[in-house]
Design a protein around this nucleic acid. Structure first.
Length: 542
RNA sequence: UGGGCUAUGGCCAAGUGGUUAAGGCAUCGGACUUUGACUCCGACACCGGUGGUUCGAAUCCACCUAGCCCAGCCA
């Protein structure tokens, strides 16, 4: 299933290598440390990483920390952990804040060239004079201050001589540009806030549009990938690189964001779910945050496979999470141990099996991957099978499970035949009485009869009790925008069951298993008695 | 209504004038099966619309239509 689509950015890079424009391809992933990463970010991370590596270059992780009031060290740690988990190794770890001195110097250069000025207008006034989509803006009355005055004022801004918001530095470009971004954008604002890296060294901070191209140029980024909404910013990006006289000229290229159908993405919405307690935290397994996917047990290789299968288009459609599910199964089908588990048990009593007898059979962990070895599988008079695997009456000829009068194979054990049922007071099936045929032992080569299907079981007296958590979509009716998110929460998004697994399999945190005929599950990172369903097995049962 | 983008089967996505219009997901048949899993076979598109250019167009041109983004001292 690993299918690397060609994409337009790869083509651009190939051409740049071929033409000799670049001999080393350098990319970067530039998150702002103000929230957790989610599946959508995986596209940017993986593509940036892959493209650089495919052409013998490298990839930097750079935190775009130019706004101290929103950013926090806690997020930088979480982001680093997520990217490392994905296996996308960065060559350099940088912070935009590493470059504040350089940025200030370059901004001053703009001032000296008469390309930037200090503006005393309030935020409100700037907004009012910027014009709108159809009308030009009006130049600020401070637009024509002398270069000397601007130099002095900008210095004074930096030195803390003005109150927050009293002045800004603006680029002098074009107040009547049809591109709103070019209407004398703000370059620096005054903001007294403690920065997670530079603490209180600065009271002025550069805006994204100014900072980002310089960061890229300073690092020698050759291809600066970002999402479509920055397409309008590209002229500004180029303007700043040119007029600040940066040596390296990075090229910004925009691609379409990855959108996932029927999922909550977007930091603010996820944050709302976290804050309002609809989920356990940013790493809740129902979330498509990278930490949530990790906690659920999704292997990072599956995320790579998924991202590569999607390619890197400029269009933005809604991707069906089925594609991720399929990638997960594909990765886990060979790598995961396969064991028996019963989530909704009914008791099976083998009436012709001696009461105190107990035997240990041997079963492979994964018949498609012998290197995983074997495990002992217990068998006795008392077993547990899945409630769904028994029916009082066989409904039709194609029904391949246990029913009264029918014989099935217990996987890796014997054929059993159901003879009688006992109900509890509530009318629920309590015990199914069966007989087994010793001749049919697994591996014996017995072929005289064909069983009515194969089901799995767990030996009852030794079984390990575990908590099994089943997940369904967190939010329903995601397409109905008029309903607030908290009213769309699926009350069945997490169903907790008490189940049983084989006795002799030690559960190690973070390890993933296939529960035969059920699905893939992973052991919780903190509590090995809890298993999360990663994804169900497919079924063509009708 | 200014500017910037996008539009290929139910979903994603290749394709850049000559192809039977890749591939994946989903779906539907069927084979196999000690997981109704896996695997394997098979089915599944007149390329947003309308005109035009051309021997030939998803690919070029024109005009429409639909959707997304931009008026933060956010990124």
């Amino acid at each position: 299933m690993t299918m690397e689509n060609s994409n337009f950015i790869r083509t651009i890079i190939e051409n740049d290598v071929k033409s000799g424009k670049h001999d080393t391809i350098i990319t970067r992933f530039p998150p702002e440390p103000n929230g957790f990463l989610h599946l959508g970010h995986a596209r940017a991370i993986i593509m940036n990483h892959t493209l650089a590596h495919d052409y013998g270059g490298y990839f930097n992780l750079r935190f775009d920390d130019t706004n101290p009031v929103k950013e926090d060290t806690m997020y930088v740690e979480a982001i680093k952990k997520d990217i490392a988990w994905l296996g996308c190794h960065w060559k350099n770890l940088y912070f935009a804040s590493d470059y504040f001195d350089e940025m200030y110097f370059r901004a001053m250069r703009l001032v000296e060239k008469g390309l930037a000025y200090v503006c005393d207008l309030s935020a409100e006034q700037i907004k009012d004079t910027r014009g709108d989509l159809t009308n030009s803006g009006v130049g600020s009355p401070y637009r024509n201050r002398s270069i000397e005055e601007n130099i002095a004022l900008f210095k004074a801004m930096k030195n803390g001589e003005f109150a927050d918001g009293a002045k800004v530095l603006r680029a002098k470009i074009d107040m009547s540009s049809p591109n709103m971004n070019m209407r004398d954008p703000v370059v620096y604002r005054i903001q007294r806030a403690t920065h997670h890296n530079t603490q209180d060294k600065w009271c002025i901070y550069p805006m994204y549009d100014f900072a980002h191209p310089l960061e890229d140029a300073i690092e020698g980024i050759t291809h600066s990938l970002c999402s479509l909404e920055f397409e309008d910013h590209r002229p500004l990006y180029d303007w700043f690189v040119k007029h600040t006289e940066m040596e390296n000229v990075p090229r910004q290229i925009e691609f379409g964001k990855l959108r996932i159908a029927n999922q909550i993405s977007g930091k603010r919405y996820i944050k709302q779910l976290v804050d309002e307690g609809h989920v356990d935290g940013w790493d809740d397994p129902r979330l498509i945050t990278l930490s949530g996917l990790r906690r659920r047990g999704v292997p990072p290789q599956a995320i790579h496979q998924f991202i590569h299968a999607l390619g890197l288009p400029k269009s933005e459609g809604d991707t069906d999470l089925n594609m991720l599910d399929e990638a997960i199964r594909d990765v886990l089908k060979i790598s995961a141990k396969r064991i028996h588990a019963v989530i909704d048990p009914i008791h099976i009593e083998i009436t012709n099996y001696p009461d105190n007898a107990f035997e240990t059979l041997i079963a492979p962990f994964n018949k498609d991957n012998e290197s995983l070895g074997d495990r002992p599988l217990h068998f006795s008079r008392h077993l547990l099978i899945e409630r769904d695997d028994f029916m009082r009456q066989k409904p039709n000829k194609k029904y391949k499970r246990l029913a009264l009068g029918e014989e099935v194979r217990l996987m890796h054990a014997y054929f059993i035949k159901a003879n009688d049922v006992k109900y509890d007071d509530a009318g629920c099936i309590e015990t199914v009485y069966c007989t087994y045929d010793p001749q049919t032992k697994s591996g014996s080569g017995f072929t005289d009869r064909k069983p009515n299907g194969t089901i799995h079981f767990v030996e009852k007296t030794q079984a390990q009790a575990v908590e099994i958590r089943l997940y369904e979509p967190l939010v329903l009716n995601t397409d109905q925008k008029d309903i607030p998110v908290h009213e769309k929460i699926n009350s069945n998004s997490r169903v907790i069951k008490q189940g049983f697994i084989e006795a002799s399999v030690p559960l190690k945190p973070n390890e993933s298993y296939q529960f035969t005929r059920i699905g893939y599950f992973s052991v919780d990172a903190d509590n090995p008695a809890i298993l999360h369903r990663i994804v169900a097995l497919k079924s063509s049962f009708k």
